[in-house]
Every structure is written in C-alpha cells, then in structure tokens.
Amino acid sequence: MFLEVKNVVKSFQQEQVVKDLSFGLEAHKTLSILGKSGCGKTTMLKILGGLVKPDSGHILLNGNLIDEQSPSDRHIVYLYQEDLLFPHLTIFENIAFGLRLKKMPREEVNAKVENMVHSLELEGQETKMPHQLSGGQRQRVSFGRAIITNPSLLLLDEPFGSLDTGTRQRMQELFKKLAAEFRITSLFVTHDLKEAILMGDEIAYMRSGQLTVYPDKEGFIRDPATGVQDEIAFWGELLPGSSNPL
C-alpha cells in the first residue's frame, strides 16, 4: 500500500470527530469519499496533510512514518473547496508558486508552467489576475498549482462544490484526464453520490467520524446506508420499468 492510515483518532473538546480511522490506498489511484457535511471529512484530510495533529494513530506514506513531519515536508497538498488563488499574483505566478518556493531555475519554471497551462486548457489566460477568471477556470488554476509540485498525495475537499452543473461535469472529466496524465494519487471528498462513483477507483463512505471502504462499486451500491438504493428506487418509481408503455 502507498498510503496507510492506522487507528487515527481525533477529538475536539468532548466530541470524537474522527473515530479509529484505518484504510489504505494504492499509488496512482483515487479514493472517493462520500459523506454529508460535518461527518469529519475535512478533519480527516487536514490530519493527513499535517495541518491538524491527531490524538493517536499513525500515517505511513510509501512505507515511511510521516506522523512527525511538518506539512511542508510531507508533499501532500490539501485543496480547499474555495480555490484560494493568491489575489496578488497572476495566473502564471499562481501556478508557478510552489516551484518558486523550491527556488527552481527560471527556464525550468517557465517550461513546466507552460506545459501545465496547456494541460489545464488555459492558454491565453496566463497574465490575467484571479478575479478576471470564471469559477471553473479558477478551480483549474488551483489544481494546476497543486499538481505542478508533483505531490505524493492530493487531498481534495469538495473541489467542485461551488460550481454549476455544466462546469462541474467538465471539471470532472478534466480531473480524470489530469489524474491519468500526471499519475496522481488522491483522496476525493464529495457529498454528491454520482460524483463519488464517477471519480473514484475505489469508494468509501464516511459517517459520524467512521469510514467504510468498499471492496468494489457493487458493494457501495448495494449498501443501503450510502443512499444509492434510495436513488434507484426514486427513479424507478417515476418510470415504473417494464410496465411503462413508453
């Protein structure tokens, strides 16, 4: 396993937000995690990213224990639902930000960013400022800024939550393309049933601090807790199958 999480627990005051969290993920795979708001998803991601310290438990990345590593040494990028583009930097500089932190030579930065701009289908936008872009474009820049640093693991916290349906669909496709192109390992948190099934190589369901990982998509669909059965029943009632003369 590339990522291994073992018995992680986190409480705020009296409330246990993350309960005995254990799961693993192979390299270059995406695990999508379905959960309602307030189920502990964000806390779990922040623990992985090193932004929140767990009460107990261990995290291994590529066989190495990373519990004591600071966020900047983990090579795990956490992406918020908001795009959080730096308002004082151009699109180009936003994407280049992580590379500049590493003091990479100028030519190399230019080449990498141009390549990334192309992959993000953002040609011609490089010199614009963030506020001149649409919501979908901004989210793409945010992805590019993270992926270009070649992170070991990408943590996505409802990245498409604030986008309209059409844009959301296009972004899902683009992300799948990028994930394949850059061989990304990621956790993809969403509260949208369809998105969870669409984006994940594997699927998990999180409820009040506990995570269930399903061995395959059928398992996920069959479990009544995930809500897939309700969804099927709903559409089934609208179009009562074979008895409908349509």
Partner: peptide
C-alpha cells in the same frame, strides 16, 4: 479563517513559515 487557509496552503505546497509570511501574508 481564509487567511489561515492561505497560510496552510503555502505549507502544504512545501513553503516555510517565512515564505508564507513574505510571499503571501505581507502582499495580502
């Protein structure tokens, strides 16, 4: 919270405390 998120973002992108301060907090 937003400013805090910006800081954390710099950390997860591999930046140090100093870099977060000079490159993001001061310009913001």
């Amino acid at each position: 919270e937003r400013t805090k998120s910006f800081e954390e973002l710099v950390f997860t992108l591999g930046g140090t405390r100093r870099q977060a301060f000079v490159k993001v907090l001061l310009p913001l």
